[in-house]
């Protein structure tokens, strides 16, 4: 049976990754472990000693921070894979154009790349699950669902970002996306502290961010406390974002690549 067109595009990214996977071990496995140790265990010892535990809903800090970091890592990995490699496909290595010189269509190229990004996000989330299990902070069997939840978070970031990246002429704006977008999201979306401690104005903004929904989704899953209503709200928000992003991306890709 013939490989579907989009997956043929995915194959390219997989092959390219086979040459660089060793280097990405650092970002995929080592940094999750380091963050969990430094924040969850190290800083956690001071949180748990002080009165902080009360505002966490009486769970240990490691328990609190681990699923948040998993969601944040999914978002960060997705953002990295959805910006510079897109510019590479258009301008640096011009891989997209090489693909379009074959029977592949623009939608195949887009879908193929998004599939690959989804796989990379899964690789970024899985180590957290393993490390969390090793630290014993996955009390509920539903915790395994953090993997698909993480992929969903990743796609909610990925599709709008590839849509944006395809409109750019150089990579200058990407550092702004990270510095002014991803970093504040990482720091204020409830990964390290509950959003409830924020002043009310910031709290409202935090509730509107995709990362907060992702963090909540993952956290409730690890605790086995995800109800139908919150599942619908959080997952619904992320799915909507991913779909809208994909629709816009198919337009910006077409405009950019069909010249």
């Amino acid at each position: 049976m013939a490989t579907p067109p989009a997956l043929r595009a995915t194959q390219y990214f997989l092959l390219a990754y086979r040459r660089t996977w060793r280097a990405s071990i650092m970002s995929t496995f080592v940094s999750p472990l380091l963050y969990l140790l430094a924040m969850g265990v190290g800083l956690g010892s001071f949180v748990n000693k002080g009165g902080g535990a009360a505002s966490l809903g009486h769970m240990g800090y490691l328990q609190f921070v681990a699923p948040g970091l998993a969601a944040a890592n999914a978002a960060t990995a997705a953002a990295g894979e959805s910006t510079f490699p897109v510019m590479g496909g258009i301008k640096w290595t011009r891989t997209y154009f090489a693909m379009l010189a074959t029977p592949l269509r623009v939608v195949d190229v887009l879908a193929g790349h998004l599939t690959w990004i989804g796989a990379r996000v899964a690789m970024a989330v899985a180590p957290y699950l393993i490390v969390m299990a090793a630290f014993g902070v996955t009390p509920s069997p539903e915790a395994a669902a953090v993997l698909p939840a993480g992929i969903l978070v990743g796609m909610a970031f990925s599709t709008p970002l590839v849509a944006f990246a395809a409109t750019q002429d150089n990579d200058g704006s990407f550092s702004l996306v990270f510095r002014l977008g991803m970093i504040p999201l990482f720091l204020f979306s409830g990964v390290f502290f509950p959003v409830s401690v924020l002043p009310v104005g910031l709290r409202v903004i935090a509730y509107a961010t995709p990362l907060w929904h992702g963090v909540e989704l993952c956290r409730l899953l690890t605790l086995g406390r995800l109800g139908a209503a919150s599942a619908a709200v959080h997952a619904g928000y992320l799915v909507a974002l991913a779909v809208v992003g994909a629709v816009i991306a198919s337009r910006t890709y077409t405009r950019r690549l069909r010249t």
């Binding site: 902080g52 002014l180 002043p199």
Partner: peptide, 30 residues
Amino acid sequence: TWWVPLSGIAEPVFYLLSIGIGIGKLVTSI
């Protein structure tokens, strides 16, 4: 492209604010 280097200051400032209004609420003293 002055805004690219200038935006580099944002990251540490965001960390500073996050510690001040967030984690600082969890860790009272050290």
